[in-house]
Amino acid sequence: MKILILSEYLHPQTSGITIRIEYYIKYLRKFGHEVIVYGPKDCPTANRTLFSIPCYFFNKDMRICFPSLQLYRDILFGNYQMVHIVGPNIFLFTIFIYLLCLLMKINICTSYHTNAYEFVRLYIKNPYVFQLMTNYGYYTNYYPTIRLKIPILHPENYTDLKILCNNFNKGNVLSTGIDTQLFSFSKNFLRNKLIYIGRIAPEKNLFRLIDLFSLIQSDYTLDIVGFGSVETQLKDYVRKKNIEHIRFIGRIPYDQLYKYYQSGHAFLCTSLHESYGFTLLESLSCGTPIIYPKCEVFRKLYQKDFPQLEFDVDDDEQFLNALTYVQENTDELRELSRKYAEKYSWEKSTEDLLDIYQHISLSNK
């Protein structure tokens, strides 16, 4: 199969979307498919680059791409069996790509990955501006896709389509994988060392994480790995509260993150709005237990296997109980964590994606 993938999310970015798309591309090529990737410049995975600018307001690590004549020409004459647009936006003029593919009878799909509704709500406090932005997002990103009947791909717990699109519940669910060789099991952790790995951004609820750590700072250390828009404010908050034993590690290359997961006694998460949360699965793959908040996505994923590690993010006692459970059951939890992660693989996830492609192709005949 000859596949064109258009994505703004590619290495060296470090988001969960980037991880998913990079592994899809890797295994599609490994399976023998011809994959042409359009993306921002300075992204090694992209065969062909598009002009792009940093997304300064939300996340400087992300770049906004603009279409090119080469892209349109490639769609017209490239003889693709599938065109896959990742996270369409108004700047890509996605509707023109949709119409061009429909006119040329080229199979096309699009995938949404970020719960933008909850994401934007954390950044825009004015209710009128927020409503304006959500209406704008609906009529530019979702409405054309649904009206033109473009097949939609999304993670299992994606919520934007239901919230913004009249309880829309169709689409193809993307399965998830994990690189268990990179994120390998290790027994060499540091007792009483806690870790957080991810973006330092409002939606991660990290000021609450700092508050929780302040309850145990005399007995534990905390490494915060990552960067983001509220990094300076978070460091100031730690200084203001005079909290010790916290290290801000900064940005670490993706292929080196396993060292930090492996070193931790437990991984802390306080985020309440995730479409999946890859960092928790990566931690489990290294054998490091997760202490996670009560929210829909984590409840579906982890409550059955790790009910004692769930806590109400506003309840200090529940957090302390979960931490105590880790202390009392460390060896057993590390084995169970790795066993849980081994159920996932990017090879199987990519096979599932190919099944979706095949189903779309057959339904268009």
Rank of each mutant, 00 (worst) to 15 (best):
L4E: 09
I5H: 06
K26S: 10
Y27S: 09
K30W: 05
E34M: 13
I36G: 04
P40Q: 00
K41D: 06
L50V: 01
I53Y: 06
C55F: 05
F58Q: 01
R63L: 02
F66Q: 03
Q70T: 12
Q70Y: 13
R73V: 13
I75S: 12
V86F: 03
I95G: 03
F96I: 02
I97G: 08
Y98H: 04
L99G: 13
C101K: 00
L103R: 12
K105V: 15
T110G: 07
H113Y: 12
F119P: 02
V120Y: 06
V120Q: 04
I124S: 15
G137I: 00
Y142F: 11
L148C: 10
N157I: 04
N166H: 12
F168G: 08
K170S: 14
L174Y: 02
I178F: 02
F183A: 04
I195M: 05
I200G: 08
A201S: 04
E203L: 13
E203A: 11
L206V: 05
I210Q: 03
L212K: 15
L212A: 10
S229Y: 10
V230E: 03
V230F: 03
T232E: 08
K235G: 05
D236V: 07
Y254L: 03
Q256H: 05
A266I: 03
A266Q: 05
C269S: 14
S271N: 01
Y276W: 04
S285Y: 06
C286P: 12
P293E: 00
V297E: 00
V297C: 00
R299I: 13
K300T: 07
K300F: 04
L301G: 09
Q303P: 12
F306V: 12
F306S: 11
P307K: 01
F311Q: 14
D315N: 13
Q318I: 08
N321S: 14
V326Q: 02
Q327W: 06
Q327Y: 07
T330F: 10
L333E: 05
E335P: 12
S337L: 01
K348H: 12
D352R: 10
